[in-house]
Design a protein around this nucleic acid. Structure first.
Lengths: 370, 370
DNA sequence: CTGAAAGCGCTAACAA
DNA sequence: TTGTTAGCGCTTTCAG
């Protein structure tokens, strides 16, 4: 627990001035080889390690190598893949990522933003959950570049990497309409999120163009987690008349829907049940053998089995399961964000850029013609 | 792009000393309400923001609020869920997570570890990919607590949160053996990883207890990504005699195996193909309609369709797909790591602790009796 | 309640 | 090639 050795101690031990020690260790040059070796071994002996924060303080201004990322929750594959793409790209340029989860809570987002800025991050990538961003206007003047991802800035001009939400959702609806569906349920995330609104809009556009005026009857919103989504879908399928198809507007809702619909490959022998979902519950390495009691998937399969489904976001096992989706590339979004940021750090002071990434329809068995 | 205002500038503008400004803004007290208000408004006017690195430098020692996490790749759900659990727990205690991906490359790990230590992180959580950790012994004496996750430290005493890899793998093998399987293929990750070795050991124990001596004939290792795993499984199934069951030792290998085996729910109508896997490829929002050409999943279904399968790690849609797994809770591992770290930061200097988290068998349709 | 001086660990600027 | 001095932005210490 002895406190860390400083450069001064290394200098003392090797009998040189602090500055010489600094030069020797930071590879600045202009140090006799012999001196350098002596300093090096003194450093090793003491277990010396540069204090990067002190260096950055002295060097002043923009020398931090930290980039902040604010997003909903890393456990969501969309965010984690975004983070992965971003981190890798930054790492290649000597920058490090510091992540903070907001849990889609504006208050947390505000607090964490402050905290990252106090830490003098070099830039900030944010999948914002806030309604507006005027409060960041002052920051921009102080030279911290922001890149918005997934959701655009409101009341603020800044770079952004977005998805073609509207187009993707429209395509999803068209795909279902082409297959003859008219009563199409749509289950969405938090209604305040712009991504949600855009997806509903795109959906609406296709539906109205097809002359389906009452599509709102089958709209369910604010299904923010898998369980809520499962319940929402179940409720939707219980309607009379029931929808013949579903559009789920993100990966978690699609997961919930799949559970509700019971698109299980081997329904007859499937022994899995709702109790298995909570992997947080540990039961001492015991064997779980649930009989079919309370098996929600099987239980409802009669109701939803024939229901067509298409989801926004690709799923990890989407290909194996055969789920039709509107796919896009979260890693690419992260890489793009990194590139925009790096350009700013490189001195680019042009007008704010907005990149819109495409989506594509992947047609699989959940929307196959019967 | 004007540089950030410092406390001195706030002090100047409000006509007080630097120290008074400091007191006013950091809520230290002993400031006249009126003075405090004046300083506050000056700070607002200038857009002042505390420089936390300067504060930490001055306060000395262990005042950083940063905790580092080193792991393979956030895009892997195991790591991202671990990170999520860790981050949330730390956040509740005012600490922030800084993540770095090693891509299972020891060289990167070493470099990133150095970098994090130079940043004076308060502690380090590491899913190490290195063969030994003796080089960190010096660090421990300087008061930076390490917590190893998933894989234990080698040549170093430190806290660790591990899985019951051996027990879980043994249980998997027993489960298959109980169902009458004898020729069981086992596909594993990088053979140098201790987790892999432990899982193979557990598997071996059960196999040998059951009198299956030649299990190694069906062992394939170093299938580190989904594609490699898919190919490995395909090769295994092409053997004569082919294995009747498979044990895949992590989530990515299981994914690859599912693709190879083609456990698709609607095989007859499944239109998905290998080309869809690369979501990195964007094709301008176009519709992908692949005919069954080159559909690897369907193509091999004849070979592997009847093959039983159990995987280590839960899968996102494992319940819907009906895949039997040895499950555990990555978030819990993260939370545990946080707790161990927090205890150390709180002054706990007892002997190194080792937590072993249980696994549990979830029996689903891929190992159902036919 | 307020302030002046010193210093955290490091490096820029300027000497020698 | 090496050393000295000053100072990054903040807080501690000690006086007012």
């Amino acid at each position: 627990m002895s406190s860390r050795p400083s450069l001064a101690q290394v200098a003392a031990l090797s009998g040189v001035s602090v500055k010489t020690a600094s030069r020797a260790l930071s590879g600045e040059g202009y140090v006799a080889v012999e001196t350098k070796a002596r300093v090096q071994s003194a450093a090793d002996e003491l277990g010396y390690r540069l204090n990067r924060t002190a260096r950055e303080l002295r060097r002043g201004g923009n020398t931090s190598t930290l980039v902040g990322l604010l997003s909903g929750d890393l456990a969501n594959p969309f965010y984690s893949r975004l983070a992965s793409g971003l981190e890798r790209e930054l790492r290649m340029h000597g920058l490090q990522l510091i992540t903070a989860s907001t849990d889609e809570n504006p208050e947390w987002e505000r607090r964490l933003t402050d905290s990252l800025l106090e830490r003098r991050v070099r830039g900030l990538v944010v999948a914002s959950t806030m309604a507006e961003h005027g409060h960041l206007a002052a920051e921009r003047r102080h030279g911290s570049p922001f890149v918005f991802v997934d959701r655009p800035p409101v009341d603020l001009t800044a770079d952004a990497v977005l998805l073609d939400n509207r187009g993707g959702a429209k395509r999803a609806a068209e795909h279902l309409l082409e297959r003859g569906h008219r009563r199409i349920g749509i289950v969405g995330d938090l209604s305040r999120l712009s991504t949600h609104q855009d997806r509903v809009e795109g959906f609406a556009e296709a539906m109205e163009a097809a002359g389906v005026a009452d599509w709102r009857d089958y709209l369910l919103e604010d299904a923010h987690d898998v369980d809520k989504a499962e319940r929402a879908v179940r409720a939707l399928l219980a309607r009379d008349p029931a929808p013949t198809a579903l559009f789920t507007t993100n990966n978690r809702i699609t997961t919930g829907a799949l559970r509700a619909i019971g698109h299980t490959p081997f329904a007859a022998t499937n022994k899995d049940a709702a109790t298995h979902r909570d992997t947080a519950t540990h039961r001492n390495a015991a064997t779980d053998k649930d009989a079919a009691t309370g098996n929600s998937a099987a239980g409802n399969s009669a109701a939803g089995k024939g229901t067509a489904l298409i989801g926004f976001d690709e799923l990890d096992l989407g290909d194996v399961l055969g789920v039709s989706v509107i796919a896009h590339d979260p890693e690419e979004m992260g890489r793009h964000a990194a590139r925009l940021l790096l350009a700013r750090l490189d001195g680019d002071d042009g007008p704010a850029r907005r990149v819109v990434l495409p989506t594509r329809l992947i047609e699989r068995s959940t929307t196959a013609l019967t």
